[in-house]
Amino acid sequence: MMKRQTAGAVLSVAFAAALGAASAGAQQNFDDVAVQTLQVRDDIYMLVGAGGNITVQTGGDGVLMVDTQYAPLSDRILAAIGELSDEPIRYIVNTHHHGDHTGGNANLRLAGATVAGGNMLGAITDSGVGAQIVAHENVLFRLSSATGDQAVSSDGWPTTTFFGDKKQLFFNGEGIEVIHLPAAHTDGDSIVFFRRSDVISAGDVFNTTIYPVIDMQAGGTVQGIIGALDKIVDLIVPVYGQDGGTLVIPGHGRLSNLGDVLNFREMVIVIRDRVQHMIDEGMSLEQVKAAQPSRDYDPRYGASGGFWTTEDFIEAVYRSLSEQE
């Protein structure tokens, strides 16, 4: 038990440095980062810079964005959004609490405006200040409970939280579902499904760059990652050949379709099954790592350095499965 806590603490430090802390963004140099825009559908765009991908929906009601990358990039993000719409940011949806997805919350929220007040505006003078930030309630718990160097300004906290399966919005003529996926990358993950545009913004339960990051300290599990990927696959309706149809904007990496999600899901399941088999055989964590159960996928998703290595992933899978038993 103690060993698990120690390992969790190690992982937690890594996350704090790389993902979880708002201050982590301040330590990085963003001078050379350009925010690039990819049109996904008529009114849906993917912004790529540093940190998690941002999804932007535009229309007559205003701008809705999913995630905000790091605070030092906020001006560049606002400039990129300004190229797409003259309307204010009305909603920000956070897919989870990590700083590479929420670091710009405060700046971008305050640059927007909530539809509020009406004929009561004189009495509630601050009701329209700032966009709403929508997230699962665990995102608020984690952002608001961080202290010291990890503290996040209350301007960046979610203003509208939900619990249970999902929250629905209707914005810019489109039904939008914010769907909670329990215990996956963290315990506060949501995907955002734009129903008319047929686009899913997946957050970090799906990426195309590295092994899935499982933040066990924040309630993540490998089973939850697979469950989340199952949910995304269920929502996708592909065109013939699986290119196109429902498109998926991953937390990191390239615009994707069903085939990409299936390949990623397949990889996680295969490695999960191998590690489970080794656990059943009585192998220790060190023995499992030495057996390299992911070596066929390592060229594609593995890393020997950085904040999330192949060994980190194998350890998270091992501990997820061990704690389940």
Partner: peptide, 21 residues
Amino acid sequence: TVRTIWMDGRPHPPEFAEHTS
């Protein structure tokens, strides 16, 4: 399946664009 070979000199998309069969 139908594929297109562009002959008009257009560049390849950025790496983060959709990949297909």
